[in-house]
Structure formats: structure tokens, C-alpha cells
């Protein structure tokens, strides 16, 4: 059976440390976000940690919600693209084909999670950084959309190795950069078609919910509620 990738995000474990954000940036050659990017609201970060305040002063608590592309089964972003630059592949991934993208930005408008980003200008790295770029990942030129790919380069490598050696361990230990960097294991990635994988178990956890469930997008990412009894964040409904 084909692999179907998914992720469980345990809100209870997330400390908001932003390690995933940094790991993602280095893995996926994301342009360096300068002040002007932030001020113009054009910063790119495939995974972000939204921070919400809860409670009244002085009993204020910070809540963190790591957000990345939800790789929806019924992705609203896909059918609106006129050139098939984004579509659903057979492994449950919502893939983005940079070469085909003409930059209509319609997909970004139609994404309920704001997980899609546009390259408003050509990304530039300082001269010395050029050698640090990940050679497995394309550098996106200006005018195209980009978003979390679940580190598709790692997935491809692992499936290739698994096929070559016949060792399923390559797939079972596969992790995208964010999950790998997460110090508290709040992000758990894995194959949903493998009933024994940790992510499959978490998908049936009591605390499990999906974001914006009322939109019916059937994401491949599920969230696990905060356990904290006095202030568990309610699932977000549209």
C-alpha cells in the first residue's frame, strides 16, 4: 500500500520555542526574513508558531499553535490553480510545483490556514551563505508561491532507500526538519497507512481535533488538545 503522510501536533507539549521554524528555514532554503519583510507582511515561514494570550491579567497564559500547511484532502487551494501548480498526490501530500506556478496567488487567498507564501522578489543570501543552501531543495525565484512540503526531499530519499534496501526502517524513522528539531516531540510525523506508527495512534487519541473542521477540508494534520484543566483551548471552529 502507498504511504500516506500525516502529522500530529500536540499542543500540550509545544513550548513555543520556535526551533521548528528555524529548522524548517535551514532545511528548505527559505529566504532570510529581514525587517522590511516583516514590516511589509511579506515574511515567509513555512511553519509558524501563533501565540495566543489566554486569561485576564495577572493570570495570563501564553498558548502556542504551530501552524503549517495542513495537506488537506479536500484542499481549497488546489482546484483554483489554473495551471495545476498545486495538486494532491497519491501519498496524501498537497504538492507545489514551482516551475509551473505563474503567481496568480489565488491558492493563497483560498487557504483557510494562511499556510501559503508568495515570493515578492528574488531571494538573496549573503555571498558566504550560498554554500550552506540545501542542495536537495530548489531555490524559488520571484513570482511563485511556496509552502510547507512535509520535507518532500526527505520523504523521497527515505522511500527510495527503503525500496533499494528493502528496509522499512528508513520510512519508519523518517522525519521532516521541524519534527526532528522539536525538543519536546510536539510534532509527530509518520505514515498514516501504517497502523503501528506513532502518528496513527495519536490520530485516534481522545484529545484529537482538526483545525477549522467545519470547512471540511480533511487535513492530514491533527492537533491534540491542551491537557491543562483550567484552560484547555477549545478546538478552533470556523
Amino acid at each position: 500500500m502507498a504511504n500516506k503522510w500525516g502529522m500530529a501536533v500536540d499542543i500540550d507539549r509545544c513550548t513555543g520555542c520556535q526551533a521548528c521554524v528555524i529548522a524548517c528555514m535551514s532545511e528548505n532554503n527559505i529566504p532570510i526574513n529581514l525587517d522590511e519583510h516583516f514590516n511589509n507582511r511579506r515574511a515567509i515561514s513555512w511553519i509558524r508558531v501563533d501565540r495566543y494570550w489566554e486569561g485576564e491579567y495577572p493570570h495570563v497564559k501564553a498558548r502556542f499553535l504551530p501552524l503549517l500547511c495542513q495537506h488537506c484532502g479536500n484542499a481549497p487551494c488546489e482546484p483554483v490553480c489554473p495551471v495545476y501548480a498545486t495538486f494532491h498526490n497519491d501519498q496524501g501530500l498537497n504538492v507545489q510545483v514551482y516551475n509551473r506556478c505563474v503567481g496568480t496567488r489565488y491558492c493563497a487567498n483560498n487557504c483557510p490556514f494562511h499556510a501559503r507564501f508568495f515570493n515578492y522578489r528574488r531571494p538573496v543570501w549573503p555571498e558566504t551563505y550560498n554554500n550552506y543552501l540545501n542542495e536537495d531543495v530548489t531555490v524559488r525565484d520571484r513570482g511563485v508561491m511556496e509552502k510547507c512540503s512535509f520535507c518532500v526531499q526527505r520523504i523521497n530519499r527515505a522511500t527510495r532507500e527503503a525500496k533499494r534496501t528493502g528496509d522499512e526502517e528508513f520510512i519508519n524513522t523518517l522525519q521532516p526538519a521541524c519534527a526532528q528539531a522539536c525538543p519536546t516531540d510536539a510534532l509527530v510525523f509518520g505514515n498514516l497507512n501504517n497502523p503501528n506508527s506513532q502518528v496513527s495512534t495519536l490520530f485516534h487519541d481522545d484529545r484529537e481535533y482538526t483545525l477549522q473542521e467545519s470547512l471540511g477540508t480533511e487535513p492530514n494534520i491533527r492537533y491534540l488538545k491542551k491537557v491543562d484543566k483550567e484552560a484547555a483551548p477549545e478546538p478552533v471552529h470556523a
Binding site: 479536500n74 481549497p76 482546484p79 467545519s214 470547512l215 471540511g216
Partner: peptide, 9 residues
Amino acid sequence: WYGRLPHEQ
């Protein structure tokens, strides 16, 4: 048809 929102389905 296009929106595929459950309540509209």
C-alpha cells in the same frame, strides 16, 4: 458544489 463545505453539501 465547488466550495465543498460540509454544511452546504
